[in-house]
C-alpha cells in the first residue's frame, strides 16, 4: 500500500468511513500519522462543541454567581465547586455509570418514547460532561472578570442614565470579555488537552472509532515502541494549540481595538493541566 492509498483508506477511520480493519502487522509511519490524525477529528469535535455550548452556560453561571440573591448565587457556587473541585476523570466515570442506569427501553414522556441508548455513547455523554466541566472553569474566569470591571466605568454609565440590561450589554459585557479573554484562551487550550481523557475513562470506543490518543495507544501496544506514536500525537496537539492560540488572538485583537497599544492585554500561556 502506498502512503496515498493509506491516507484514502484511513483518513476518516475514526468516524467510521473507509477501511474498517485496522492495520495489524508491518506498521508504517504513514499509517500511524494518518490514523492518529484521523483520531484528531474527535478531539476537535469535543473541544469545539463543548467550548461553543460552554461559553453560553459559563456566562449565565458567572452572572448567577455575582447575583446578590442567595437563591440564585448558591446553586451557581455549588456547580462551580463540584466541577472544579473533582477530577474530570472521575466525572467521566460517574456520568457513564449514571447514564447506564437510565432504562434501556427508553423513557416514556407524555406518550412519546425517548431513546436513551445514545446517551452512553462518547459523542453525546462525554460531550455533555466536557460541556459542564468547561462551563464551570470558564464561569470562574468570567466571574473574576466581572468583579474586576473598573468601578469608575460603572459609575460613569449610571451617571449617563444607563442602567439594567443596557448597562450590562454596553458596559459590563464588553469589558468582562476583554478582561477574561487571555485566561479564557488558556481554558480553551486545556479543554482540547482534556479531550484526550474521553476514551481512557468510562466511555468505551465504539467499533474502534477513537480519538488521537486511542490510536496512539493502539500502536504503542501493538509495536511495543512508544517513541513513534506518542510524539506524533504530541506534534498534532502542539499544532492544534498554535491554531487555537492564533484564532483567540484575533478575537483578542478585536476586543482590544479601542485601546492604546500599551494597555492591551496579551495572551500568555499559563500552566493549568489536568482537571
Amino acid at each position: 500500500m502506498t502512503c496515498w492509498e493509506t491516507i484514502q483508506a484511513y483518513a476518516f477511520r475514526s468516524i467510521g468511513l473507509g477501511e474498517n480493519l485496522l492495520p495489524r502487522t508491518d506498521f508504517t509511519l504513514c499509517q500511524q500519522v494518518t490514523l492518529i490524525g484521523s483520531g484528531m477529528i474527535w478531539n476537535i469535535y469535543f473541544g469545539v462543541l463543548a467550548l461553543a455550548f460552554g461559553f453560553v452556560l459559563a456566562v449565565a453561571v458567572a452572572l448567577a454567581k455575582s447575583s446578590p440573591q442567595p437563591m440564585i448565587r448558591k446553586p451557581a457556587e455549588w456547580f462551580v465547586f463540584v466541577f472544579r473541585g473533582s477530577p474530570l476523570f472521575i466525572q467521566f466515570f460517574l456520568a457513564y455509570e449514571a447514564l447506564q442506569l437510565l432504562p434501556k427501553a427508553g423513557i416514556n414522556v407524555l406518550g412519546i418514547t425517548v431513546e436513551t441508548a445514545w446517551t452512553t455513547r462518547a459523542w453525546a455523554g462525554a460531550l455533555f460532561v466536557l460541556f459542564l466541566n468547561t462551563s464551570a472553569y470558564a464561569a470562574e474566569i468570567f466571574h473574576g472578570a466581572l468583579k474586576s470591571i473598573p468601578k469608575g466605568d460603572l459609575e460613569a454609565a449610571e451617571a449617563y442614565g444607563i442602567t439594567g440590561w443596557q448597562k450590562f450589554r454596553r458596559i459590563q459585557w464588553p469589558t468582562m470579555l476583554r478582561l477574561a479573554w487571555p485566561a479564557y484562551t488558556n481554558e480553551a487550550i486545556f479543554l482540547f488537552h482534556a479531550t484526550t481523557l474521553v476514551f481512557f475513562s468510562g466511555f468505551p470506543a465504539f467499533r474502534q472509532m477513537g480519538d488521537a490518543l486511542y490510536y496512539a495507544n493502539y500502536f504503542a501496544d501493538k509495536t511495543f515502541n512508544p517513541f513513534i506514536p506518542y510524539p506524533i500525537v504530541a506534534c498534532y496537539f502542539i499544532a492544534l494549540t498554535l491554531i487555537v492560540t492564533g484564532l483567540f488572538a484575533l478575537v483578542n485583537r478585536r476586543l482590544n481595538r479601542h485601546l492604546p497599544s500599551n494597555v492591551k492585554s496579551r495572551i500568555r500561556l499559563r500552566p493549568q493541566i489536568i482537571r
Partner: peptide, 9 residues
C-alpha cells in the same frame, strides 16, 4: 504544549 496524559502513557 502537550496533553499530560500523553506524557503519563
Amino acid at each position: 504544549g502537550v496533553p499530560d496524559i500523553i506524557f503519563f502513557l
